[in-house]
Amino acid sequence: MSFILKQPSVLPGFALTLGFTLFYLGVIVLIPLSGLFVKTSTLPWEQFWGITTTPRAIASYQLTFGASFVGAIINGLFGSIIAWVLVRYQFPGRSAIDALVDLPFALPTAVSGITLAAIYSSNGWIGRFLEPLGIKVAFTPLGILVALTFIGLPFVVRTVQPVLQDLDKEVEEAAATLGANRWQTFRAVIVPELWPALLTGIAMAFARSVGEYGSVIFIAGNMPLKSEITPLLIMTKLEQYDYAGATALGVVMLVVSFVLALAINLLQWWSSTRHMNQ
């Protein structure tokens, strides 16, 4: 047979562990996820289209994707600065900060939600200084942006940081000895190296933000057409026993998530092939 399904190996347990893995994934992930698509396929196309294109649904997409995008870009900028500072500079508290960067990832979303709402409300630690300036954060779309920026924070830092660590200083030295100033070296030598990782990090932050629920709902205000994100709209439909509506919107979100996951995989592949070519 010219087509080999598995390379021979002396190691034991292949059939057992593969069997268990497939069974577990099948029961926990595959069957439930496919159920969503099967359920949707029972909906007539007109009904599916009708549910997913109501003004309320479209307003929620615009808000969810818009706020996620802006949040991801903000994290792209500040995440790169944080990664740079953590890798290149020595300062007190560096390793503690390095560990704390993952906090938004480890903190339960409900905790982030109520905390951000408390800080940015009109008598909160930050909100009270913004209120006199006429800036309202809590219970407005701006609050959603704050929450999504918070939860996206670790992604850019954690994708850019390892690339910066592996960056060969000799290339920068060469650029400098050839007469480039620091800014030119940064633009022509460092940025091209960081670019794939930076895009990957931004895409990951965006993907995480699009589906986020817990940290947003407490600070959002949740007004239909104004400050209602798509996951909340799905939740509302579920609470009204509108399973068809929840399922249709769920499929839209799921397809978007899959496309984003695919894009992230491609970016990572691009990033790793660039790395290998050196």
Binding site: L36, G211, G250, A261
Partner: peptide
């Protein structure tokens, strides 16, 4: 494909992770 499948729950919104069990 197996690795992609394992990573899938990370890509899915938590609300949808609950929804699929409601549908089942």
């Amino acid at each position: 494909i197996l690795i992609t499948l394992i990573d899938m729950p990370l890509a899915v919104s938590p609300v949808i992770s609950g929804l699929i069990y409601v549908l089942l």
